[in-house]
Design a protein around this nucleic acid. Structure first.
Length: 469
RNA sequence: CGGGAAGUAGCACAAUUUGGUAGUGCACUAGAUUUGGGAUCUAGGGGUCGCAGGUUCAAAUCCUGUCUUCCCGACCA
């Protein structure tokens, strides 16, 4: 296996990103634009994510289902805002074999309407609620610009769809899932995230409220790493979904949906990786340890493997007929959190060399301490990676008090800009037109005192603006 | 979708200008020697030049279309 050159991260961030994706063997291009091949390492990372999240979804009472891939045009058309939002980016199936279809069907860009159609059939009574469904699947959105993991046409994701008897319960669900996403990304992916409501302009087509999980990448660009929507009764009314409540009255349920995608893998890369390749937080790394045997160390290797297995520490052994230097570089590209250099020379003194991937710090320790040392290192690395990312992000959040200052920051810095905003979409549009920055999310937990950074009218809220992937 | 650039072996490139049916390095295979930061020697295998048309006696090379990738813009998760 060849270990390849990676573009310097500070010279050309975009190229560095694709280099890491390709050279760590995470993805490959297919012959269809925006349909990527997720290779074993990339998929293993996704499987870790799926495993952890799926468990959290089930713990909170959700059940997995699998909906169809096709949506007849008439079904998609049932909710007006939704259709208008998605129509420009759906792929249509117009032939079945050689026969032209009577009604064309789109490949699901998201499954709200499919769930609604089904919910109408199965919801009759308050006893049927809440209905808490989730599905792991792929969707298709005909994006014009595509990038591995960050923006593809075929998207591997999870979408939760729930129905509730009361507004309060549905709102609670929306926030609960937002919190699960936030905790997952911070605890497992070591990615600090900002959560909040999207502005009207940026919210999901058909939603009453859209909450977002915004992460900041190494270059200061924002990555929307997940969403949780509160739909109110929009879809339910459009689809005629009703239930009989406790008072024997017909009522309309309240709905949510929420999703995260393989985009999180892109976020992981753009948050932690470096010029030597992939860097993975231990908690999400499919294999925590890579063992590189040097010289004749078979017996110790066997013993070490047994100890790792006993302690549920996943690992790989690099037995290739390559020089150690080659294997070190290879291990770094692939992002194994901890490298064990198991060498005959060290072992004569009962020593072993460990290298942590995030800092590339080497340490030589007594072999008998290897398991506790690895365990401690993983905890330490996870914390350090989170803290470094947090510190960097915070150092790239700016505050603008007037429009000149805003434009100046937008031109000279990369990151988020915090501003007062009157709530008028015109001001949001002006910022977009002047600076290309878009609103990331509303800031809920800070007092607003001052005037809109654009128009000078009294501000209603604070907002983060930023450039996005 | 608009502007620009590029597609030749797994990768990076040469041959294209001046048409005559492909070459180098790395990687790969076998054997040997090696092994603490990208090993060495020897012997091998692999491409018909993104795809489809056209011009021509003859096309990697010229023309047209198309697909894909990258950059800039617009659009969007």
């Amino acid at each position: 296996m060849e270990v390849k050159e990676i573009t310097n991260r500070d010279d050309d961030f975009a190229k560095w990103y694709t280099d890491v994706c390709m050279k760590a063997d995470l993805v490959d291009y297919s012959s269809v634009k925006g349909s990527m091949i997720i290779r074993p390492l990339g998929y293993a990372i996704w499987e870790e994510m799926v495993h952890i999240l799926d468990q959290k979804f089930k713990e909170t009472g959700h059940e997995n289902v699998q909906m169809p891939m096709f949506i007849p045009e008439s079904l998609l058309n049932q909710e007006k805002e939704h259709v208008e939002g998605f129509a420009p980016e759906v792929a249509w199936v117009t032939y079945g074999g050689k026969e032209k279809l009577e009604e064309r069907m789109c490949v699901r860009p998201t499954s709200e309407v499919l769930f609604c159609e089904h919910f109408k059939k199965i919801i009759h009574s308050y006893r049927d609620l809440p209905l808490l469904y989730n599905q792991w699947c792929t969707i298709v959105r005909w994006e014009k610009t595509t990038r591995p993991f960050l923006r593809s046409r075929e998207i591997l994701w999870q979408e939760g769809h729930t129905m509730h008897a009361t507004e309060a319960e549905a709102r609670q669900e929306t926030l609960q899932m937002l919190e699960i996403y936030k905790n997952f990304q911070e605890e497992y992916l070591a990615m600090p995230v900002i959560t909040g409501k999207k502005t009207n302009k940026e919210k999901f087509a058909g939603a009453e409220e859209t909450y977002t999980i915004e992460a900041m990448m190494y270059d200061g660009y924002a990555l929307q790493n997940g969403t949780s929507h509160y739909f109110g009764q929009h879809f339910a009314k459009a689809f005629g979904i009703e239930f009989v409540n406790k008072d024997n009255e017909l009522a309309t349920p309240y709905q949510t949906s929420w999703g995260v995608t393989t985009r999180m893998i892109g976020g992981l890369i753009m948050t932690h990786s470096d010029n030597n390749g992939l860097v993975l937080p231990p908690k999400i790394a499919p294999w925590k340890v890579i063992i590189i045997p040097i010289g004749d160390v078979d017996e110790t290797l066997k013993a070490l493997e047994n100890q790792l297995k006993e302690n549920n520490i996943t690992y790989k052994v690099d037995n290739a007929n390559k020089t150690p230097g080659f294997k070190f570089a290879e291990a770094e590209v692939k992002g194994y959190p901890i490298r064990v250099e198991l060498g005959a020379r060290d072992l004569k003194e009962n020593k072993v060399t460990l290298v942590r991937r995030d800092t590339l710090t080497k340490m030589t320790i007594d072999f008998k301490n290897i398991i506790p040392t690895i365990q401690n290192l993983m905890v330490e690395m996870q914390n350090d990676m989170y803290n470094r990312a947090l510190e960097r992000r915070n150092s790239m959040i700016y505050e603008a008090h007037d429009y000149a200052e805003f434009c100046n920051i937008a031109q000279t810095k990369s990151g988020f800009i915090k501003v007062n905003w009157c709530g008028d979409e015109a001001c949001e549009n002006k910022i977009k037109a002047d600076t290309t920055l878009k609103s990331r999310c509303l800031i809920a937990d800070e007092e607003v005192d001052g005037n809109c950074v654009v128009c000078g009218q009294k501000a209603l809220t604070k907002v983060y603006f930023g450039r996005q992937y």
